[in-house]
Design a protein around this nucleic acid. Structure first.
Length: 413
RNA sequence: GCGGCUGUAGCUCAGCUGGUAGUAGCGCCAGAUUGUGGUUCUGGAUGUCGAGGGUUCGAAUCCCUCCAGCCGCCCCA
């Protein structure tokens, strides 16, 4: 038996209607914030990610689906989409278009990790990028938008965490300072942290081991060690968020795993997701454009939502709606039903026709499918030029003329 | 990539210390006489017991390998 490959999965109804609902909310909101859709290829040159995301990151060093094409070039299935959007921005000279370029995308990403709940090798992200401004106002607007999006999608009980990770000017100095501060206390930390203290001090801040927290809390924070411009930028972002009444928590220990992030970073966590508790992550990446070879500067900020995680956390509602179930009795009725169904569908109602069933069976199906109305169509009806329309929930049924059907079913209850 | 747990009908599962698969629940299909559902009753279909190998007279039950899922680590969305 051939099965879906490890870490990938089929999305089936009714789950797909939850996904569609989430995507509809996203598209509506993107429109409100004046974002336009961008669709970039799933396949990119490997170099794009090596230079954009960072050669040393886990994503690039061990999680990418990379292969050699027949002409010898190295291609990679995109593990994220910020680099791809930036590549397109540069390639098509979007910097020459007026205003900040606000672009959104919805699509699959690929990372070869060990699958787990909420973590797949092919997963979907809903994301957006605002490129062409380094203003903290843009940061606040992006963050406001994601909070709004999650709320409207039906997510509740989430926490918005923000931080600033500085820039090329102040971060290296901070990392050194952190490294120094860790030297005396490292032996008291967990094994992982002892290793990280040496290899990647910032990661120590992410440690979740309870015993380590007291020590980690005493370490110098990046927020206290920002250079003047970064400090001012972060303060501005916060006050803009305060102006909008958006609640957030400053998490000096929030560090992100992609090299391109600088200054503002943010994340939304949700309790019901187990170890994969991040629903959304994002941040500013003012140096990314240059890193992938742009001749012009292109400061930007963006985010991406884990659609798989969001869909599994959202209170599931959306069942597939069925307005009318037509039960034709006999061949003449079946032919009649085909034409009638077409007419109703063209008017925008969802219609199902029982192709070959007895009335009893048809009613049973109508019930199981959750149809709002059943329309019975037999020789009597054809002769009379009327249909028997039954409201499933109440059980009431009436004879209705063809022209009245739409009006009848229009009034939901 | 590392560690742990799990893997029996479409789904949830039972199957005691190995004896050769369940009257289990839900679902699905078909009936309970002629054009009417949601309740009830009756009947039915469906499994190479995740795959392969080993031990044994005999394995769903024990051992090994692999695969998949889940949990934790790592990382992130």
């Amino acid at each position: 038996m051939i099965r879906a490959v490890k870490g990938t999965r089929d999305l089936l109804p009714p789950d797909t209607s939850v996904w569609n609902a989430v995507e509809r909310v996203a598209r509506d909101l993107f429109r409100a914030y004046h974002y336009g859709e961008i669709r970039t290829p799933i396949l990119e040159e490997t170099q794009l990610f090596a230079r954009g995301v960072g050669q040393e990151t886990d994503i690039v060093s061990k999680e990418m689906y990379t292969f050699e094409d027949r002409d010898g070039s190295s291609l990679t299935l995109r593990p994220e989409n910020t680099a791809g959007v930036m590549r397109a921005y540069i390639e098509h000279r979007l910097d020459q278009r007026p205003g900040v370029q606000k672009l959104f995308y919805i699509g699959p990403m690929f990372r070869r990790e060990r699958p787990q709940k909420g973590r797949y090798r092919q997963f979907f992200q809903i994301g957006a990028e605002a490129i062409g401004s380094d203003s903290p106002f843009v940061d606040a607007e992006v963050i406001e938008m994601v909070v709004e999006m999650l709320c409207r999608a039906g997510l509740s009980g989430f926490t918005l965490l923000i931080n600033s990770v500085g820039d090329a000017n102040c971060r290296p100095a901070y990392v050194e300072k952190l490294r120094e501060a860790l030297k005396p206390v490292a032996p008291q930390l967990c094994g992982d942290c002892q290793r990280r203290a040496d290899t990647n001090p910032l990661r120590v801040l992410d440690c979740k081991v309870p015993e380590d927290q007291a020590i980690i809390n005493e370490l110098p924070t990046i927020v206290e060690n920002l250079c003047e411009p970064c400090g001012a930028h972060f303060a501005a972002v916060r006050s803009f968020l305060d102006d909008r009444g958006i609640g957030y928590e400053v998490r000096p220990r929030l560090v992100r795993g992609l090299d391109y992030y600088m200054r503002t970073t943010f994340e939304v966590a949700h309790g019901n997701l187990g170890a994969q508790n991040a629903v959304l992550g994002g941040g500013r990446y003012d140096g990314l454009a240059e890193a992938i070879g742009s001749p012009v500067a292109a400061p930007g900020i963006g985010f991406s939502i884990g659609e798989d995680r969001l869909a599994m956390t959202v209170d599931r509602a959306a069942e597939q709606e069925l307005d009318v179930f037509i039960a034709p009795l006999g061949d003449a009725a079946l032919r009649h039903a085909g034409a009638l169904a077409r007419e109703l569908r063209r008017a925008g109602t969802s219609v199902e026709v029982a192709a070959n069933a007895k009335l009893k069976r048809a009613m049973e199906l109508a019930n199981k499918l959750g149809a709002r109305y059943a329309l019975i169509l037999g020789d009597d009806e054809i002769a009379a030029g009327e249909y028997t329309l039954k409201q499933m929930e109440t059980g009431e049924q009436h004879r209705v003329a063809r022209g009245e059907i739409l009006q009848r079913i229009g009034q939901k209850n």
